[in-house]
Amino acid sequence: MKTADMIIAALCLFISGAFAAGSLKLGYMAEFTPGSGFFPLWLAIALAIASLILLAQAILRQENGAWLPGREGLKRVLSMAGATVISVFIIPYTGILLSIGLFMLFLMLTIEKHSWLGVIGVSLLTPVAVYLIFQRWLLVPLPMGVFGF
């Protein structure tokens, strides 16, 4: 936790620096009133102060407990996160429906054992259900891929 808090505090300091730099380019005061940069500047300063307090708290603390899940758990978390990121990444090429189907297929094959029928059924039914509810009923134009769906 100690290291994590220190990293996060550093990250927040960076964010506050970026916002402060950005807000200095905007007007601080307008005619009668705070300008475009007034609010963000003070927010950034407050964030910087809070981050420094957090940093001090973290440095003064001794414990540095483990936070990583077990091996199996970590594998599951990574495959879930990875699969999600990849499936969003491929949406412009495959369309959202195929991407969702592949996502379900991959995770059902990796996380836990399921019956054949279950795997095929869920991977097929999910995009079909999404198509029927969102595209057909609610007329959401779901993103299509290069295959024309």
Partner: peptide, 11 residues
């Protein structure tokens, strides 16, 4: 089952 429900939530 959790291993089906969680991916479905992501979808």
């Amino acid at each position: 089952p959790i291993s089906i429900l969680m991916p479905l939530i992501v979808v």
